[in-house]
Computed example of a mutant assay.
Amino acid sequence: MDTRDTTVSPRQRIVEAAVELLESGGPEAVSTRAVAAAAGMQAPAIYRLFGDKEGLLEAVAEHGYAEFLAGKRAQLDPAPQNAVEDLRHGWDLVVEFGITRPALFAVMDRATGRGADAAHRAGLEILHGRIRRLAAGGWLRVSEELAAQIIQATGRGAVSTYNSTPPDRRDPELLTALREAMVGAVTRAEPALPVTETGPASAARALRAALSDGAGTLSPAERHLLGEWLNRLAADGGAPHA
């Protein structure tokens, strides 16, 4: 007797079957024939709904991002008291997901560069929100864009290194060390004063972060011009230009 939930769409059944095969048997287990059989459908349905196997893997990645984002939002503090600790918490969530669900994380990571879906973009917005809070508090030591790149690169690197290490040689201290290296690269030991000995870069970053959620007294053209000035100051500390 077929006990599958008939309220689930064929597309969702196929994606869930692919995820289950991926996590139980690795990438080699995710053939179109095996996925179709696990979903109780014919193989042509996969091609009709996803185009090809790569399209199916893209949908698996979207499913993974949506699942991760749901868990992340459940643990999200909308107004954290400590922006640096919030950064640590967010990094830990990503890494924990990556080491507990390595096969799915690998597919998600592989898909990151191609047509990011809504869940992935929403996750990035949470990351950039954390970075803006760091900037507004004077904690950020690099540009917001570079901070995002460092945070993402160290998270992916931590997951990749940990998962590729033989289980009997894995040391959780590696993850802690990489996280703290990331925090040290992105943030200051103490929040910067509005103007530092190297110029007004920290003040520009803080003001840019504060204005990112809106500045009603400025016109769009004024905000654009101010943004250009703040970006230049934040990038080079306000060194004079010829």
Rank of each mutant, 00 (worst) to 15 (best):
D117H: 11
S160C: 04
G155I: 12
G115A: 15
A136V: 09
R130N: 11
A70W: 07
Q149V: 14
L49E: 05
T112I: 14
A122F: 09
F68Q: 06
R130Y: 05
F105I: 09
M108G: 00
L124F: 06
L93V: 13
G98D: 02
D92C: 07
D77K: 06
S160K: 07
D86N: 13
G71F: 11
L76W: 14
D52L: 10
S160V: 14
G71R: 04
I126R: 00
G123T: 08
G98Y: 09
L69I: 12
T165D: 00
V60M: 06
Q81S: 15
R101G: 02
A79P: 04
D109A: 15
H63Q: 10
S164F: 04
N163W: 02
P102Y: 06
E58C: 11
G137D: 14
Q149N: 10
Q149Y: 06
T154R: 03
D117Q: 08
G123Q: 01
Q42E: 15
R141T: 12
T165E: 03
N163P: 04
Q75H: 13
G51Q: 10
Y162P: 02
V159T: 05
R133D: 07
L124S: 05
L124G: 08
L127R: 01
A119N: 00
N163A: 14
A116Q: 05
L124N: 04
R114W: 10
E54F: 13
N163C: 15
T100P: 00
P80V: 10
T165M: 05
G115M: 13
Y65L: 11
F105V: 10
R101Q: 08
L127E: 00
P167M: 04
E125A: 15
P78S: 11
G51K: 08
A70L: 13
E96R: 12
R88M: 07
E62R: 14
F68D: 04
L140A: 01
L56V: 13
I150E: 01
F50W: 09
A111K: 00
S143H: 08
R141L: 12
